[in-house]
């Protein structure tokens, strides 16, 4: 369960002023639900997720993961969170198995549980061929699978995947998509981001459209269709973006 309330993240700019990458974002994601953060490049998806992962401290607002506050209980949050993004790299000098074991142990999982889980996941994601290879020699799809196993080795209730399928071929991507569905079936709470409309359409129970650090819309695809009169998510997305641009112009005109 994720609850985000008025989350703000600012970065200092070169000239010393502040830039709001996340500007008052609120949404929630329940157990057994897949929520998608949808937005263009630079919309603030990754930044929002990094704040939720406790790697960044919020400049304002709050959020809880499984009821734990991201600022005051960061360790608890991380214990209940599986996190994956483009910035969570792998140790090239380790073998895939060692890498996964390392993070399992760091998260306090017993070796027996690590092995059992790794076995199960290897089956699911078809990883047996490269589990004992050095990560250095793996392809990016293989690495992504290793990363996924790494992120959920401690069986967290909440999962945050930042563009989990980016750069992957269609088969591997499907593999991962079906894994995310499995997670949902097991009652987990999944938040993932993408800028691929198809993926959001197919996978998400609810979509949060985020643009320039702000939430433009939050609902199911059906709700969006009803509200906008558009069928395609592409068109829905553009509709909301145009609407926000117009509002901005209007408010600019007022002054």
């Amino acid at each position: 369960m994720i609850e985000v309330l008025n989350l703000v993240k600012e970065f200092p700019k070169k000239d010393g002023s502040l830039f709001r990458a996340v500007d008052g974002v609120s949404f929630s994601a329940n157990d057994g639900e897949i929520v998608c953060l949808l937005g263009v490049n630079g919309a603030g998806k990754t930044t929002t997720m990094r704040v939720l992962s406790t790697v960044f401290k919020p400049s304002g607002g709050t959020a809880t993961i499984q009821g734990y506050d991201i600022v005051s209980q960061p360790e608890k949050v991380r214990q209940n969170l599986g996190f994956l993004s483009g910035d969570t790299g792998l140790y090239n000098r380790l073998r895939a198995r060692e890498f996964i074991t390392y993070f399992g142990r760091l998260n306090g999982v017993s070796d027996a549980d690590i092995n059992a889980r790794m076995e199960e996941m290897a089956e699911l994601l078809d990883m047996h061929d490269f589990l004992d290879k050095k990560i250095d020699f793996l392809s990016s799809g293989m690495k992504q699978k290793v990363s996924i196993v790494r992120s959920i080795i401690h069986d967290p209730q909440v999962m945050i995947f930042d563009e989990p399928t980016s750069g992957l071929d269609i088969l591997t991507a499907r593999n991962i998509v079906s894994f995310v569905r499995d997670c949902k079936a097991n009652g987990k709470c999944v938040l993932f981001s993408t800028h691929i409309m198809r993926e959001a359409e197919r996978l998400a129970d609810r979509i949060v459209i985020i643009h320039r650090g702000m939430v433009l819309a939050n609902g199911t695809l059906e709700e969006f269709r009803a509200e906008t009169g558009q069928i395609d998510l592409d068109d829905i997305f553009v509709y909301y973006v145009n609407q926000s641009n117009m509002e901005e112009e209007l408010s600019a005109d007022e002054f």
Binding site: R50, S53, S85, T88, L106, G108, R150
Partner: peptide, 10 residues
């Protein structure tokens, strides 16, 4: 870019 991986562990 492995630091973040480490930081998101518990």
């Amino acid at each position: 870019r492995t630091l973040e991986t480490l930081l998101v562990s518990s």
